[in-house]
């Protein structure tokens, strides 16, 4: 059914065409106001931070109460956290996505799972921090460690990976599943050999975007794995670690007399890390789109 539009009288006396012109200009202005600050922020950070990025800055330990030297432990820590998060969240997330797309019947239990996923996606990051503190740090006695922080970040990342996996699998046409089964493949064989490879680029994109978010988060690691300062690199998953986002928080609010070069340099490194992942994700996506056979 088509609802016929009912127009309000324009509040100013302009012709239809002119009011459209004014309206469009207004919308364009709004878009500019939305987009420009972000581009401005990125440009500003690059401008102020690029000068600090030296080999030494990236590979040396901090010195002089973090007011000099490099940020190696924070970079390495963020990298460890990303790996840890990936290890736990990827297999579980993909499996859960496969379940929802391929195995789950349309029943109560499935609806409950979906509600749980939506809820997980909406839990505030600092609440994840509390949860990680309660479960991993204290209850399982993993302490403030890379392990606790990674597990916490994993659960936070899970909904992203599950949803993108399910979505990518569902976009693969149903007929391929029928054909796979008709040729004597079991359901799992058909999924693994035919459906999953087709969905893979979408899944990988989702994983990268999920990890991107995890890498940039501070609140969930505040009380589960992050430490103010570490004189050496973490040696095991049971060690606490420095991390770029937490380090930025520390040097911009907790350390008086911080040289701004180091501040902006650190922010730039994190930004490059995150935007780099974003770029990779979109490259994978557009390449896959070009190659798709269906």
């Amino acid at each position: 059914m088509i609802e016929y539009p009912q127009y309000k009288k324009p509040f100013y006396a302009l012709s239809k065409q002119n009011s459209q012109k004014v309206g469009f200009s207004f919308i364009r202005l709004i878009t500019l106001v939305t987009i420009l600050p972000i581009l401005g922020i990125i440009a500003y950070i690059v401008f102020k931070g690029a000068g600090s990025i030296t080999w030494e800055f990236l590979t040396a330990m901090p010195s002089d109460g973090m007011r000099a030297g490099g940020i190696l432990p924070a970079i390495v820590g963020t990298f460890y956290l990303m790996i840890g998060t990936a290890i736990f969240s990827i297999p579980l997330g993909i499996a859960a996505g496969i379940y929802l797309s391929e195995y789950a019947a349309d029943n109560r239990w499935t609806r409950l799972i979906r509600i749980a996923i939506v809820s997980l996606a909406g839990v505030p990051s600092v609440v994840y921090g509390l949860f990680g503190l309660g479960l991993f740090v204290l209850f399982f006695k993993f302490g403030i460690s890379i392990l606790s922080a990674s597990l916490t970040l994993s659960i936070m990342t899970l909904p992203v990976i599950i949803s993108t996996t399910e979505e990518s699998l569902r976009s693969v046409p149903y007929r391929f599943r029928v054909v796979g089964v008709s040729l004597g493949g079991t359901q799992w064989q058909t999924i693994r050999r035919v459906i999953l490879p087709q969905a893979l680029p979408g899944i990988v994109t989702g994983i990268i975007l999920g990890l991107e978010r995890a890498v940039g988060e501070t609140a969930p690691i505040l009380f589960t794995g992050a430490t103010f300062f570490l004189p050496h690199l973490p040696g095991s998953p049971m060690d606490a670690t420095m991390a770029l986002p937490y380090h930025i928080y520390v040097i911009s609010t907790q350390v008086p007399g911080m040289p701004s070069g180091i501040q902006y340099g650190t922010v730039l490194v994190l930004l490059a890390f995150v935007l780099g992942m974003n770029l990779i994700a979109s490259l994978i996506r557009s390449r896959a789109r070009a190659r798709r056979q269906w």
């Binding site: 391929f176 029928v178 796979g180 493949g185 035919v194 490879p197 087709q198």
Partner: peptide
């Protein structure tokens, strides 16, 4: 309905 695989793989799948 060719599977989104190569010609060879379409036949070897089964």
């Amino acid at each position: 309905i060719p599977l989104p695989l190569t010609i060879f793989q379409n036949i070897s799948f089964g």
